[in-house]
Design a binder for these strands. Structure first.
Lengths: 217, 217
DNA sequence: CATAGCATCGAACGGATGTTCCAGTCAATG
DNA sequence: CATTGACTGGAACATCCGTTCGATGCTATG
């Protein structure tokens, strides 16, 4: 993107400020008044330049027809993910099955975790969050009160960290998954701790761990 | 909030749809054309009603001067925080001092962590993020590659988790802080591990731990 | 100096847009 | 039936606002 002159940068800055305040773009005369430019044609001229440089998009013959292309990306919820916190995860409890994520996901009053997409990395579909109860997952460096984000899936590649339900033990755990013949090795994230070995048909994969979030009260 | 008639609800819906598509509000005549209403005065009349009901705000004599009050809350990046990742934190390294957070904070290319405000809880001023290097903080349930969010402060209340620089040992650590007379007890978050005791003038508080984020590759 | 390109300026034009006034329609009510 | 209130129509009016045009500097460039 080509650089802008000082005046053009001022105009662009003002447009951004104006839209933050007012929810709608400024008119050419708004810009003219703010920057004490003597003529609307000067503003129009510079807006054309800014548009050619790619910073804004203009809708001809439409009042306030200025859109910031820059902002569409970083701005707003468009790049913001609201992940529903559908329940709790604890050692002795099976992972709750989120009914239909779509309908409850963006509900106003529902408990949601808002994060940027860089922490999810990939398609946000099928992703949900659970609040951790108890200290049973400290071996995975996960504390009581943490929020874990999982992607629902029933199989796993070797090395992926997954939430599994152990049928015999009747408990949930969060470990790295390795299929070794008939058996499964479940390795804690904390390298100083020992893995669990069990039969493959004893583990029921609930989802893949996507991210962990801890807010200090 | 009082209910709306069908036509008024249609108008409100269309305004919301229009603003999603265009980044600016519709004109009265846009609404008129979309809903095939025969007169602009009908739209104006209904907009006045909708405004009285509290669903929108209108700016008189301003083109496209319609704002959705509903959206201001849940809307977009307004409630989204971009926290700059200003460096790394490791056992043997002092915490980098962020120069001026404001100027570099929202830079386009700067590495930023985007999270919702519920994970920060409080004023986002003076908050910055660091990427964790090494496994020296597993006792605080923090792994290599995690991102920690800190609020810059040089003092701490007992019980707060803080990032401290130990002058003698020349290393950084992240522990719960307890001032006990002349000495300081630094307690790991992991309850199974032993605390560190040291003189108060050996600890240099760098900031208070606000949150921890881990993204599984 | 002549020329060209860039940025600015002032003014006017014309379409876009909010506002207002008056006349209706329709259902509910007495 | 008359009245009232909520709502819709049609048209005109007054700005608001984007666009265009001619003119003026200003800075290279040759």
């Amino acid at each position: 993107m080509k650089p802008l002159t000082g005046r053009q940068q001022s105009i662009l800055d003002y447009i951004a400020r104006f839209m933050d305040d007012n929810d709608y773009p400024p008119t050419i005369r708004d810009i003219q008044a703010e920057l004490t430019i003597s003529s609307t044609s000067v503003v129009d001229y510079n807006l054309k330049v800014i548009e050619e440089r790619g910073y804004i998009r203009r809708n001809r013959n439409i009042s306030r027809g200025i859109e910031l292309v820059q902002r569409d990306r970083s701005r707003r919820g468009s790049s913001m993910l609201s992940i529903p916190i559908v329940g709790q995860i604890a050692a002795g409890l099976p992972i709750p099955v989120p009914g239909d994520l779509e309908s409850m996901g963006t509900g106003e009053d529902a408990d949601v975790l808002e994060v940027g997409p860089e922490l999810i990395g990939g398609n946000p579909a099928g992703v949900f969050a659970l609040r951790v109860r108890g200290h049973s997952m400290v071996d995975a460096l996960i504390n009581d009160g943490d929020i874990v984000v999982l992607r629902r899936q029933e199989t796993a590649q070797n090395g992926e960290t997954v939430a599994v339900w152990l049928r015999e033990e009747r408990e949930t755990t969060l470990k790295k998954f390795f299929l070794e013949g008939e058996n499964v090795r479940l390795q804690p994230a904390n390298v100083t701790m020992e893995p669990i070995y069990t039969r493959a048909d004893n583990v029921e994969i609930q989802g893949k761990l996507v991210s962990v979030h801890r807010s200090i009260s």
